[in-house]
Computed example of a mutant assay.
Amino acid sequence: MREEGAAPLVAPVGETPIVVLVRPQLAENIGTTARAMANGGLFHLRLVAPRDGWPKERAWAAASGADRILDAAQLFDTVDAAVADCHRVIGTCPRPRHVVVPVLTARAAAAELRAINGRDERVAILFGPERAGLEAEDLARADTLVRYPLNPEFSSLNLAQAVMVMAYEWWVAADETPPRRLQTHKTEVATKGSLDNFMGHLVDELDACGFLRNAPKRPGMIRNLRHWFQRGEVTEQELRTLHGVVAELSRGRMRHGRPEKTAEPDDQD
């Protein structure tokens, strides 16, 4: 059933969480679940008594290339059979129902999943049917519950969204992407020395054209200019461009002669 251009998804060596869809209703939702799993680096899918049977072509059509996850999906008649080889079972539940059991956020659950798999133990995450979620009997198979902290006025998720939240948290729990970075393409952030060099060039030309002629205001104006460039994470390429701008303004002034009068600079202190 694999489409042309399917992603070359290969599960890593060792244990990773198993996504168990309990009585899913629509094949399209199984397909979009596979897509969400692939986004977050989850590869093992088990299906418990899908309402419309399995396999279904519509699932592959909705998977956007996550075909290998669907190709390898395992089919079970009951939740007990689906989790029989697992050491831990986590159930997703919007509202815990009169049970004494640990309840984690998705982020905390992801950390626990990493720890469990790090011990080479197998863990399953149960997701219930689209309409009502897991039933009490399903939740009785779970030793831990997960509840997403969403808007209490509207916390409804479709099946793939629910899986995506968990898959995302699983992925970022081990991801080393810095929380913030500056995209500089082929240049780099300017050094303080480069900034000082440019400021010297700029101030010389501002003095030459008379912009900084007000002696009492001059230090504050220069300081404000320096703060502006320091704050902006200026790149080396941008500084080269600014050097060119200042040099061209200077040449233009020389070609046409210095104006008899320049505008009085605003108070910038």
Rank of each mutant, 00 (worst) to 15 (best):
E3I: 05
G5W: 04
L9F: 06
L9A: 06
A11F: 12
P12Q: 12
V20T: 14
Q25Y: 09
G31N: 09
R35Q: 06
A36M: 08
N39K: 05
G41V: 13
L42F: 11
H44C: 13
H44L: 15
R46I: 15
A49F: 06
G53L: 11
G53F: 08
P55A: 12
K56W: 05
E57K: 13
W60K: 10
S64T: 08
G65E: 02
R68K: 15
D71A: 14
Q74H: 10
L75K: 07
R88C: 02
G91P: 03
V100Y: 09
P102N: 05
P102I: 04
L104Q: 11
T105W: 06
A106M: 01
A111H: 09
A111F: 02
L113K: 05
L113P: 12
L113W: 08
R114W: 06
N117F: 04
G118H: 13
R119A: 15
V123D: 01
A124D: 02
G128K: 01
E130P: 01
L134G: 00
L134Y: 00
L139G: 01
L139N: 01
A140K: 06
A140R: 07
R141E: 00
T144W: 01
V146W: 05
Y148N: 10
L150H: 07
N151E: 04
N151V: 04
N151W: 04
N151M: 06
P152L: 09
A160M: 10
Q161R: 02
A162F: 01
V165W: 02
A167F: 03
A167G: 11
V172H: 08
T184G: 09
H185T: 11
K186W: 08
K186S: 13
T187I: 12
T191I: 07
K192D: 14
S194F: 03
N197W: 02
G200E: 12
G210S: 08
F211Q: 02
L212V: 09
R218A: 08
P219S: 15
I222H: 00
L225C: 06
F229Q: 00
F229M: 06
E238L: 10
L239V: 12
V246S: 03
A247V: 04
M254N: 09
M254P: 02
G257I: 11
P265F: 10
Q268L: 15
Q268V: 14
